[in-house]
Design a protein around this nucleic acid. Structure first.
Lengths: 346, 346
DNA sequence: TTAAATCATGGTAACGTTCCCATGATTTAA
DNA sequence: TTAAATCATGGGAACGTTACCATGATTTAA
């Protein structure tokens, strides 16, 4: 099947003008007589002329498209990111191409290649937890492709970055738990080595210190990348629940683990917050519907996407190589609900 | 910032060949000496040559990209659709461009224009509930752009379609409720006029008939497009709960309403299933975590996307105009959980 | 009045690729 | 031996657009 499009040539022929004149009239160039311009514009409208973006891209050596590398769209945090990105990108006339890594390093490498082969003008990347080697990204960057990191940043990449204030987010959550009477607070996180987790752990430690609660190594539960399934959590939770000095509350530093924690409590009849209180990072839009409803740290996912897209487009459209980079840090929001209710005296 | 790419000309110059020869060698054309071919391939690999897809698109008059028009990605059903679409599209070498209507007719019109101006080779569309006039889609189709409908189809568009067996889905759910002792079953749905709802209502009626339960007009609750917010549901639910002959169970024919129903019960302390049992359509991946866990009809969202993408690509790649169209109907799955537990005798 | 400046337009190359049509070299058949 | 067939390659146009460089026509300045 083929879709026959009207071109600038058709207009030129019909009006007895040259393609140059038509092209100029269309983008109101100064050296075009108003009459001619109007004539062209009217006729173009009449025959529903639409410029061919592919020809323009070839000519201008830019595609007006940006690529996103993200772990998965079926996750509220990321889909909100994308919405933020699109709101800016569309306003600026860019198309967005989304690619999902599914937290797999290999797929991420393929996606990076794919996007560059599709000649996007720039890439927004939130690396997979699994990724340790960033050369698939840095090599593109070195060859001159604008790249902006968001949420999960690449330390060694010197570019614009947009992140959430994870230290403060975790700090707020833990201070809140402590304020409600919980002293024995465990910390559940994914891979300890990634910057996001590192910062949240820092926030947790800062809060403990501020409330004079000693940090206990055995209250730390972490999951290497790829081991975030329900089964993995269940195993470690079972062990934790059997500790003689077991925690009264947990702070969870990952959306996925927060959801699996709810699943664990439901399946094992653990009453939250009486038996075990909790608060954690989550952007799930139904966290108010669980029983108990969840106290969560919400990330400004939409704003994160907006800021990242803004910075990337600025970089793409900059005439000279950009050398000064900024890292924007956005605030999280603590939403207090039932899962962290005041501790009852026993 | 600019990203300098290697072209076929660079290779030709370096090896003292013509661009024609290089181009042919790259796509192993029969009339190329194996030695030459290998020479070109090796050199291309060495300097990391990647064909410029924009130039290819211009030449071949196809972009190898397909557009999706969907209501929103921040919804499990749709994000699963997209995953299914991408799995096929990427395998076949197509890029996917997603556009969200947010259930708004106006945005849908803009999206359709945008995608066609971006010269996609075809479009997968799931129309907004609000949309009554489909000319923004049909006009593109008439001009020769391949289009496939999925989930929410356009009756008047004669093309391939992929849908869920909504009649049977609703039938199964209602039969299940009836089997568990509920005779007074209300039906909650969004706009009655759209095909999806119409079919689900039909399934409901069929089930009632099969179980000899008379259909009651006042057990029907429907929400016009745009009125699916929590407030709207709350108002009608309050009224329903005050009916003298109020229902013992509800069957919900929309994902969004299912979630809002859970919210209503939680906020109003309605005990499910004792006070009011429920079952409904939902693809939410945490419906097992609510209290009670939800009995749901799950749509094969991923498979829906796969099938739609397959049909679209077949249509795009067909040499001659396609005139025979198929409508694929996929089965739903009934997942029985607590919210529809056997009715207790009172 | 005349040279210079400005205006409005046309011609054409270029972006990177593919594909049709040469063209010269080698091989095959009679 | 010679014509025909096959092989391997090159030349160049085309896809739709933009931008540079003409080029004549009109206007302005001296």
């Amino acid at each position: 099947m083929k879709f026959e499009a009207v071109t600038i040539k058709d207009i030129a022929k019909a009006l007895g003008l040259s393609t140059s004149t038509v092209s100029r009239a269309m983008r109101d160039h100064y050296a075009i007589k108003p009459d001619t311009r109007q004539l062209v514009l009217d006729y173009a409208k009449k025959i529903k002329y639409q410029p061919n973006p592919i020809a323009v891209s070839l000519r201008e050596k830019r595609s007006r498209s940006i690529g996103i590398i993200i772990s998965e769209i079926a996750n509220n945090f990321f889909s909100q990111n994308i919405n933020g990105i699109e709101s800016i990108a569309n306003k600026e006339g860019y198309t967005v191409i989304i690619s999902q890594s599914g937290e797999s390093y290999e797929r991420e490498v393929l996606n990076a290649q794919f996007l560059s082969s599709r000649s996007v003008d720039g890439i927004l990347v939130c690396v997979a937890t699994e990724t340790k080697d960033f050369s698939h990204i840095t090599s593109l960057y070195q060859r001159g492709l604008p790249i902006v990191c968001f949420d999960r940043v690449i330390d060694e990449l010197d570019t614009h970055k947009v992140v959430v204030d994870n230290i403060k987010g975790a700090y707020d959550g833990v201070i809140h738990l402590a304020g409600n009477g919980y002293k024995k607070i465990a910390f559940i996180c994914s891979s300890e080595s990634i910057p996001v987790t590192r910062d949240r752990l820092q926030g947790y430690k800062n809060a403990l210190a501020d409330r004079s609660i000693p940090f206990q190594e055995d209250y730390l539960m972490h999951f290497p990348p790829g081991d975030l399934t329900y089964k993995d959590l269940e195993q470690k939770m079972n062990k934790m629940m059997k500790m003689k000095n077991r925690p009264e509350a947990v702070f969870i530093a990952s959306d996925k683990l927060t959801t699996n924690f709810v699943r664990y409590c439901k399946l094992n009849d653990i009453h939250v917050p009486d038996q075990l209180a909790m608060a954690g990072f989550s952007n799930l839009d139904v966290s108010d519907l669980f029983n108990p409803s969840l106290t969560v740290i919400k990330s400004p996912a939409f704003e994160l996407g907006e800021a990242a897209a803004q910075l990337l487009i600025k970089m793409i459209e900059s005439k000279r190589p950009v050398t000064k980079f900024e890292t924007r840090v956005l605030d999280t929001q603590l939403v207090i609900r039932e899962s962290s209710a005041k501790r009852k005296k026993k």
